[in-house]
Design a protein around this nucleic acid. Structure first.
Lengths: 131, 131
DNA sequence: CGGCATCCTATGAGATACTG
DNA sequence: CAGTATCTCATAGGATGCCG
């Protein structure tokens, strides 16, 4: 298969969670690999200042069946998030990404740095966390 | 490792091309797997109406050393794009994504459909190519 | 044919501030 | 503590139209 015919929107590449799910989805999966985490823990781990972003990410992921939410009825509130089996099934993909990054990311970044790219904002340099 | 400490922006997940590179990067790689393609070919294959988007994607990818551009000095213009070794090295990752999609994507989509998600626009259903 | 130059718009990401 | 409610802002994505 590959690129013979026209690539329709049903193509896996178009639907894959890391693109569909927003910027933080992948990191949340990684953060939850060790086991359940609380909302605040996640927030700190991921370095998210705004709660809203995390809330949205988690809601989307719940909607997609990637994580489950457990509300330990307590006061003060205590809520934990945990990977579902489906969520954990993403691990091989993440590992593939990690391995690639280990071996090749430097090369890509070097290329990028060397290029004027005709333009200033080709893509935000990941090493400089602006915003 | 995994999620012990704070996850800094240098984390591979944050820099991985499929998130950094924009929506079409992955598909372009797939489209180029078989060999060099012309600009118009890519455009058709990917189903991109706007040339600008493809131009930008390709420029970014060149900048990152993922593809090379060959201008066959001809009239009318004839330009081909080709995967570099670095670009081709993404194949394992893509395959991992594909495999995951084959096995689990349906599950995710089913989950999503079943959920009200509190909101309308959780994420654009990949099966309905709007726009 | 390839690809700029423009312009437009939806929306993702984030900052605050407030509530149960 | 774990959210919700607003608001702002940048920008990715796309539609046209023109040029070499």
């Amino acid at each position: 298969m590959t690129a013979e015919a026209r690539m329709d929107p049903a193509c896996p590449m178009a639907a894959f969670p890391f693109h569909v799910g927003g910027k933080w989805t992948g990191m949340v999966v990684v953060a939850l690999l060790d086991g359940p985490r609380r909302f605040g823990e996640l927030r700190q781990t991921l370095g998210i200042r705004s709660a809203k972003v995390l809330t949205e990410t988690l809601r989307d992921m719940m909607c997609d069946g990637l994580v489950t939410r457990t509300d330990h009825q307590a006061n003060p509130p205590h809520v934990t998030y945990e990977l579902t089996d489906l969520g954990r099934s993403l691990l091989p993909v993440i590992d593939a990404m990690r391995e690639w990054s280990d071996q090749r990311l430097a090369e890509l970044l070097a290329h990028r740095q060397a290029h004027p790219a005709t333009e200033s904002g080709a893509a935000p340099t990941p090493t400089s966390p602006q915003r």
